[in-house]
Design a protein around this nucleic acid. Structure first.
Lengths: 140, 140
DNA sequence: TACTTTTTTGCAAATCTGTCGCAATTTGTA
DNA sequence: TACAAATTGCGACAGATTTGCAAAAAAGTA
């Protein structure tokens, strides 16, 4: 389903409207990499900083956006519903970030683990740090 | 090995001393759940906010502490070396954070996935959001 | 369409967070 | 104990995030 329609639907069903600022934030986040709030504000021209914060808060509440801790500062990105779900692997040596695709069996185990602890998962993120192919070689 | 001795060793080997503030921060973080910086400061009586920030920065550099994104604000906790490794589940409704224990099979799958992508994992974190037992009930 | 009601937004002010310089205090060492 | 180096507390600050409120935009209704 088209992410845009999904956004509309998600807003409608919670009695919110699809306004210009909300559309702008959504578009800005559709790019490849997760953005810092600073970058996000920069990519939403003519939209007040306070409004961007308010839209992000709304989107987080609706499960449209999630924040990740990448090193020092957090970054924002669309959740799996609006963006292909994947995991993030960051190289400790060169700093590059690659995406690891979803793995159904892995997710299944995670859900089972949570269930054993009476927790119902709605979303999840997996972050790994290590060495990418080329840096693995260099590091000996 | 006793976590405390480990801390001493870690500090010594990098020419840092085990001072009162550092001991206090370490103790505060040994509790069950990860703490927000605000909670951490509150649990270190008579220790200046700036000092707590400085200790946390030092501990992060030494790999003693790591920061997690649990919902809205980040939280701090001891790394696997000083604390048993586990995953975090944050309730979207009440905001509480619980720990899910390590699951060997799950980790194995994650490592295998990374290996298929030529990435060598050194560390990882898994964060899940959803509803805790009591909030699951309320939400119906 | 014209009018009313409800949501959103922009702006400015207020509040938090995290950082920095520096003098005073504590720790390590001989 | 005395000296040198490391660490802390305090006050001041820059940047991040939130809030109140009036204006603007969107939704609902006749």
């Amino acid at each position: 389903m088209d992410p845009f329609l999904k956004l509309q639907k998600s807003l409608r069903s919670t009695k919110h409207s699809l306004t210009t600022p909300r559309r702008a934030v959504f578009e800005a986040l559709r790019g490849q990499e997760p953005l810092t709030i600073h970058q996000l504000v920069a990519r939403c021209p003519n939209i007040d900083r306070a409004t961007v914060y308010r839209v992000v808060a709304l989107f987080e509440r609706l499960g449209i956006v999630q924040r990740l801790q990448t090193g020092w500062k957090y970054r924002l990105e669309l959740t799996g519903e609006f963006h292909e779900h994947h995991h993030h692997a960051t190289c400790l040596r060169c700093g590059s970030a690659i995406n690891l695709p979803e793995d159904a069996a892995l997710e299944a185990r995670l859900y089972a683990l949570a269930k054993r602890h009476h927790f119902r998962i709605e979303r999840h993120q997996i972050e790994v740090q290590g060495f990418c192919d080329s840096c693995s070689a260099v590091r000996t």
